[in-house]
Design a protein around this nucleic acid. Structure first.
Lengths: 190, 190
DNA sequence: TTAATTAATGAATATCTATTCATTAATTTT
DNA sequence: AAAATTAATGAATAGATATTCATTAATTAA
């Protein structure tokens, strides 16, 4: 039993991400994926049943990696402010390090591949943020506003920062990122 | 010379928006557009040369409408705070009233149809916001931060609010919208 | 070392969808 | 009212792309 090559699988993922970033789902062709990955068209079908399968598997994989990145070194017992900064930086880093992934996830949300239960499932990833913000409210450090609104404020700003960065409209260096953190915090602090 | 029916043109636009909101560009078929608009497939080609043409014409039309909405009743000579609130509410309203348009524009930005010069062209729509924020900095009402960052903070939050609203994850009634404004202002105020 | 098994290939096929066009219907002009 | 013009139709066509599969190459087991 000859083994499948994990490098090829990863190459397919990478190629897909690259192409989706460049032209979106609309222009994604299996033959292009294969070419970009440096393999034959048919080989993609050794690893994935169909285009739909590829996209969904990749989606789940990205979510998994994202969650790991997201909670790296997070300790819910630390003081609130430490937790907040940690989560914020993790979130930014997760998005910044993998802008292709961010673009893919964005596309997935507006595609025929999306299944509602999957969306709900993966939205749970934000739960730690919800918990943290509610703790912040209890400790009277954060405004008494619907937690959803607070999350929207934070994730919206980060997402937009990454988009502008990718467009080349802004260069998101550490200085900029820290300033963005300051803005974000001033927004929700009591 | 029989005249073309402006209702049909509008119906095609509407159908396209509806379908793109539901499943994105990926699943957009000319035959579906026609069916949704209640006309024959071929009729779409009476009004548009091609699918590409349809998408680009719709894009330009939406941008035009958006810009009108955006600047409605705006008077740059009013006191800063009045201007800020006006612009903010206009921006929210433009996005909220036409969530389908917002979804379409989002998709367009990640599609093979996008042309870089078009993106740059239409990004100019944000110029009034840039101007206003720079005035705010001069008047010492707004933080001395790169204007881009301030814009990112504002537009990111609004965009995310609309997305959550569309997903049904939050009900953006006037109360919520005002709270969001409060958060946004606290973020950038000095 | 040979046989067996499975990955890899890519041209051929099947499927799907944009576009065309011969025909019909509606409107306008004469 | 008849002729002329153009919109509207939708089945047929052209073109594009997902998927298959007969064949080859590589790896593993015997």
């Amino acid at each position: 039993m000859r083994e499948k090559d994990p490098n090829k699988l990863e190459a397919i993922f990478k190629a897909t991400l690259k192409l989706v970033l460049r032209e979106g789902f609309t222009a994604l062709k299996m033959s292009d994926v294969a070419k970009e990955a440096g393999i034959a068209t048919g080989t993609v079908y050794v690893y994935f049943e169909s285009k739909e399968d590829l996209i969904n598997q990749l989606y789940l994989e990205l979510k998994k990696r994202n969650a790991e990145e997201f909670l790296k070194g997070y300790n819910a017992k630390a003081p609130f402010m430490a937790c907040f900064e940690k989560v914020w930086h993790n979130y930014v880093r997760a998005q910044m390090q993998e802008p292709e992934a961010a673009a893919f996830l964005e596309q997935y949300y507006r595609s025929p591949y999306l299944q509602e239960h999957v969306r709900k499932e993966t939205d749970k990833m934000l739960q730690p943020v919800f918990d943290l913000l509610e703790r912040g409210k209890e400790e009277r450090l954060v405004k008494d506003m619907p937690t959803e609104l607070l999350v929207i404020q934070l994730s919206g700003a980060i997402g937009e920062l990454v988009r502008w960065h990718m467009n080349g409209q802004i260069k998101a260096n550490p200085t900029i990122i820290n300033k963005a953190l300051e803005l974000a915090w001033d927004s929700i602090k009591r």
